[in-house]
Amino acid sequence: MINFVLLFSRQGKVRLTKWYSPYSQKERSKVIRELSGAILSRGPKLCKFVEWRGCKVVYRRYASLYFCMCIDSEDNELEILEIIHYFVEILDRYFGSVCELDLIFNFHKAYYILDEILIAGELQESSKKTIARLIAAQDALVETAKEQANSISNVIAQATK
């Protein structure tokens, strides 16, 4: 099981977190500080797996972002590397070569995509086409809601004149 997902920049700034195991806010801050420091200090040629507090941390760097997942010690690290790569491929497909700014300004979409892939720390959907279809449906729903909100505000504006 995946305990948590962290995305942070080369400067150590957190861009996305998703917690599947219970951690207090104080513990979360400590975990982020410890792991970002440990991973950022590692050389690029070192293994992408780190033993940490009885768990394994699997990470991978894409451009200026580190994608990091903490798993139970008996879980398969290579499977998690594939999940990380799968998540990045879907982000790339949606944003068109995802970058740090995409995650900063569209963090809600990144969370939505992650929630479609993982549920309760387990891989839920392995089809890129299915996820692309679900994301398109979500975008259509948001656009419909915006249009309805605009039409309602127009009706209200006309009625108050």
Rank of each mutant, 00 (worst) to 15 (best):
residue 2 I to R: 07
residue 3 N to I: 01
residue 4 F to C: 09
residue 5 V to A: 04
residue 7 L to T: 10
residue 7 L to M: 14
residue 8 F to W: 04
residue 11 Q to A: 08
residue 12 G to Y: 01
residue 13 K to R: 13
residue 13 K to Q: 08
residue 13 K to H: 09
residue 13 K to W: 06
residue 13 K to Y: 04
residue 14 V to S: 04
residue 15 R to L: 08
residue 18 K to T: 00
residue 19 W to M: 03
residue 20 Y to H: 09
residue 20 Y to V: 01
residue 20 Y to T: 03
residue 21 S to H: 08
residue 28 R to E: 12
residue 29 S to P: 00
residue 29 S to E: 12
residue 29 S to V: 12
residue 33 R to A: 07
residue 34 E to I: 06
residue 35 L to N: 01
residue 36 S to A: 04
residue 36 S to M: 02
residue 38 A to S: 09
residue 39 I to Q: 06
residue 39 I to S: 05
residue 41 S to H: 06
residue 43 G to N: 09
residue 43 G to S: 07
residue 44 P to R: 15
residue 44 P to K: 15
residue 44 P to L: 09
residue 46 L to S: 12
residue 46 L to T: 15
residue 47 C to N: 14
residue 49 F to L: 06
residue 54 G to I: 08
residue 55 C to S: 15
residue 57 V to S: 00
residue 60 R to D: 08
residue 61 R to W: 01
residue 62 Y to P: 01
residue 62 Y to E: 07
residue 63 A to M: 05
residue 63 A to C: 06
residue 63 A to G: 05
residue 64 S to M: 05
residue 65 L to V: 09
residue 67 F to W: 10
residue 70 C to N: 03
residue 70 C to H: 01
residue 71 I to S: 01
residue 72 D to C: 06
residue 73 S to L: 02
residue 73 S to E: 08
residue 76 N to F: 11
residue 76 N to Y: 09
residue 77 E to W: 13
residue 77 E to H: 11
residue 80 I to R: 10
residue 81 L to C: 04
residue 83 I to D: 07
residue 83 I to Y: 11
residue 86 Y to I: 07
residue 87 F to Y: 14
residue 89 E to A: 13
residue 93 R to E: 14
residue 95 F to T: 00
residue 95 F to L: 04
residue 95 F to H: 07
residue 97 S to W: 05
residue 97 S to K: 12
residue 98 V to Q: 04
residue 99 C to M: 08
residue 100 E to A: 00
residue 100 E to T: 02
residue 101 L to V: 15
residue 101 L to D: 08
residue 102 D to H: 14
residue 103 L to E: 05
residue 104 I to P: 00
residue 105 F to Q: 01
residue 105 F to R: 00
residue 105 F to L: 07
residue 106 N to D: 06
residue 106 N to G: 04
residue 107 F to E: 08
residue 108 H to D: 07
residue 109 K to G: 00
residue 112 Y to K: 13
residue 114 L to G: 03
residue 115 D to M: 05
residue 117 I to M: 00
residue 118 L to P: 00
residue 119 I to C: 14
residue 119 I to E: 13
residue 120 A to M: 13
residue 121 G to T: 02
residue 122 E to C: 12
residue 122 E to Y: 12
residue 123 L to Q: 13
residue 125 E to V: 14
residue 125 E to F: 08
residue 125 E to Q: 14
residue 126 S to L: 04
residue 126 S to W: 03
residue 128 K to I: 06
residue 129 K to H: 06
residue 132 A to L: 02
residue 133 R to I: 03
residue 134 L to T: 04
residue 135 I to P: 00
residue 137 A to H: 07
residue 139 D to C: 09
residue 139 D to K: 14
residue 140 A to R: 15
residue 140 A to I: 06
residue 142 V to Y: 10
residue 142 V to S: 10
residue 145 A to N: 09
residue 150 N to C: 11
residue 151 S to T: 09
residue 151 S to M: 06
residue 153 S to D: 10
residue 154 N to A: 15
residue 154 N to Y: 11
residue 155 V to L: 15
residue 156 I to A: 11
residue 157 A to N: 11
residue 159 A to R: 15
residue 160 T to A: 13
residue 161 K to W: 11
